[in-house]
Write a protein that binds this DNA or RNA. Structure first.
Lengths: 141, 141
DNA sequence: AAACCGTATTAAGCGGGTTAGTACAGTTGA
DNA sequence: TCAACTGTACTAACCCGCTTAATACGGTTT
C-alpha cells in the first residue's frame, strides 16, 4: 500500500503523508475508511511506530484524517479540500518551473509543445485505477 | 551577489551551488571570470570557509568551475554544458509536475492555458538583465 | 617576506529524523 | 471480566548530514 524510498531526500514521515494523500486523491482510500493502525503499519514498513504516529498526527492537523483513541484512524470526508490544497501547491510549483524555463531560454512555443506532448503520454499511462478495496470480511464500518 | 535563505530547506552549500550556476546562466558571471575566494565569500556571507569549500569542490567536480591552488577559482568556459544539464533536470521536473496535474484531474486544456498565461507574465517580469559586469580591473567583492 | 590563494584534515557541535521503551486510557470481542 | 487491540504521550538515546572551528601545508603574487 505504501512504499518508502530511501533514496528520497524527504524524511519517512513526509513520504507517508504524501502517499496517503495520494491514495485518497486516487480513490484507493475512501472517505471514512479505516487506515492501518500505527503499529501494524509500522511493522509492515519495518519502521518505528513513532514515525507513523508523527505522520498521522500531521495528517490529522491538516484535516486529511481523524483519529479516535481506542478505535483507529480514518480518512476524512473532504476530498475537495485536499484537492484544492494540492492544486494550490501545484500552481506554485508550476510558476517556479516556468521561471526556470525562462531562465533556460526555452521558447514559449517549445515549452507549450513539450507540455502538450508530455501531458498526452502521461495521461495515457496513468489512467485512474478502479479501486482494489481491502479484504472483504470484517473490515470496519 | 549571493543570498542565503535560512527558510530554505536545502543546505547552505547547495544554495551556493545553484546560485552560482544561476549567475553563470544569466551571464552575470562570465566564462573564465574569477570567483570570490573561499575566505572572502565566507566572510561576506558570515559562514564558515569550509562550507564554501564544499560548494566549490562540488562545482568543480561538475565542471562548472575550476580552481588553481594559489591563484583562485574561476568560472569554466562551457556554458552550453551547464544549460543542457539544467534542461535535462528541467524536463524531468516537468514530467513530475504533469503527473501531478493528471492526478489532480486538471484538464489538459486548462493546464496548457495556465502554462501559457504564466509563461507570459513571468517572462515579462524577469527579462534577462543586461549584465552589470563589475568594474574592470577590480575583482569582485 | 608577507599576504593572499586553494587544499586537506581532524574534532566538535547542532538539529532533524528515527528508534526504543514505557505507560496510560478508550474500544472491542470473546 | 479479561485479553487484545486502538490512539496518545513522553523521555532517552542514537544516527547522520550539515556546519563550525582550528590548524597546517604548498603555490602565487607583490
Amino acid at each position: 500500500m505504501i512504499n518508502l524510498d530511501h533514496r528520497d531526500r524527504r524524511p519517512l514521515y513526509m513520504q507517508i503523508i504524501s502517499q496517503i494523500e495520494d491514495l485518497a486523491l486516487h480513490g484507493v482510500l475512501q472517505p471514512g475508511q479505516q487506515l492501518p493502525s500505527l503499529r501494524s503499519l509500522a511493522m509492515d514498513l519495518s519502521i518505528n511506530p513513532n514515525t507513523i504516529q508523527r505522520a498521522y498526527m500531521e495528517l490529522e492537523s491538516k484535516g486529511v484524517i481523524y483519529s479516535v483513541p481506542g478505535k483507529g484512524s480514518f480518512l476524512g470526508s473532504d476530498r475537495e479540500k485536499l484537492i484544492s490544497g494540492r492544486r494550490e501547491a501545484f500552481y506554485k510549483d508550476l510558476a517556479e518551473l516556468i521561471k526556470m524555463a525562462v531562465a533556460l531560454q526555452i521558447e514559449k512555443a517549445d515549452f507549450l509543445a513539450a507540455c502538450d506532448r508530455l501531458y498526452s503520454s502521461i495521461s495515457s499511462i496513468s489512467s485512474i485505477p478502479s479501486i482494489p478495496s481491502m479484504k472483504a470480511g470484517e473490515t470496519n464500518d
